[in-house]
Amino acid sequence: MKSKKSWIILIAVLFVVLSGFWYGMGKKSPFSEVLGTLFSPLYKTGDTFGERLREFFSNYLALVDLKKENERLKKELLILTSQLNYYKEREGLYQKLESFFKISSKIRYPKVAARIIYKPLDPYSGVVFIDKGSREGILPQMPVLAEAGGEAVALVGQVVEVYPTWSKVILLTDPSFAADARVERTGDRGILRGKAEKICSLEYLPIYSRVKPGDVVVTSGFDELFPPGILIGKIVSVSRKEKFSGVFKTAEVEPLVDLYKLDLVFVLIKVPKIPLQ
């Protein structure tokens, strides 16, 4: 037993001495080499795994940052797009206003631009609400105009009820609307009335009148409500109604402005000469 122990100690000392020589010659530790040889696959695996994991986390964190950045940019894009749309809309509005004021320069009354805020589309009336009221100087009976095809301004109605921030406007087609009108070509006068349809009636035209479809109808100005010469519409048909014993002719007038698609109108600040009862 003793000799066995001595042999082991001898071998160990020999191993240490030899490894010392080995280290002295090659500057390498045999323990490290053995351990390295044995464990290198493990190191490699661990290292690769760790590296991959670090890369993964680093990429993931970068992706998270990128995602945040992406979301921020998306939000910015959304805000910028909505701002762009807003400015486009404003530009459209300014173009409309510019165009309107250019083509309505002959009308000497001040004008207030207003937006339609509500169109009830009632089948038996023609009422719309606008977003301007008494604060802007609007009064009942004031004429309301709109742009017709970018080339002219035409009458679309009349203010009837005024509140501080909004007003009610009756359109040409409302049954209670009436205006003194004149056929531009012949000079014949008549009364324009609405009947809750797309077209209006021009009544009490003289029997000898030579009005025909296509003639332009304008305001005469004799009713003291509407300034003279404002476009209204075009005649689409002429008839002689028996109701008036054949003394008068009646024409049907199609308004120049599409009243269903109204969005921007202009109120003429013309103080009515005949006060509302």
Binding site: P175, S201, E203, S239, K243, T250
Partner: peptide, 11 residues
Amino acid sequence: IYFSFLESSLG
């Protein structure tokens, strides 16, 4: 209501 407001002649 419609006919009470209406002053135009109808065909």
